[in-house]
Amino acid sequence: LDMDCLPYGWEEAYTADGIKYFINHVTQTTSWIHPVMSVLNLSRSE
Rank of each mutant, 00 (worst) to 15 (best):
L1T: 13
L1Y: 11
D2G: 10
D2R: 07
M3R: 13
M3Y: 09
D4C: 10
D4G: 10
L6G: 04
L6P: 07
L6V: 08
L6E: 07
P7H: 06
P7L: 05
Y8L: 10
Y8R: 10
Y8N: 11
G9M: 02
G9I: 09
G9D: 07
W10H: 05
W10A: 06
W10I: 07
E11T: 04
E11A: 04
E11G: 03
E12Q: 09
E12M: 10
E12W: 04
A13G: 04
Y14Q: 10
Y14D: 00
Y14K: 01
Y14A: 06
T15Y: 06
T15W: 03
T15K: 00
T15C: 00
D17A: 05
D17Y: 01
G18D: 07
G18H: 02
I19M: 15
I19Y: 13
I19F: 10
I19G: 12
K20D: 04
K20C: 04
K20E: 00
K20Y: 04
K20F: 01
Y21S: 04
F22E: 03
F22A: 00
F22N: 03
F22Y: 14
I23Y: 11
N24D: 06
N24E: 05
N24G: 05
H25A: 01
H25C: 03
H25K: 14
V26W: 02
V26F: 10
V26C: 14
T27C: 13
T27A: 08
Q28C: 07
Q28G: 15
Q28D: 09
T29V: 15
T29F: 06
T29Q: 00
T30I: 01
S31G: 09
S31Y: 01
W32V: 04
W32Y: 10
W32P: 07
W32C: 10
W32M: 11
I33G: 11
H34Q: 07
P35G: 03
P35E: 06
V36I: 07
M37H: 11
M37C: 13
M37V: 11
S38W: 11
S38L: 04
V39F: 13
V39P: 15
V39S: 12
L40W: 12
L40M: 13
N41T: 11
N41R: 08
N41I: 03
L42V: 13
L42G: 14
L42P: 10
S43V: 09
R44Q: 12
S45T: 12
S45F: 04
S45E: 13
E46S: 07
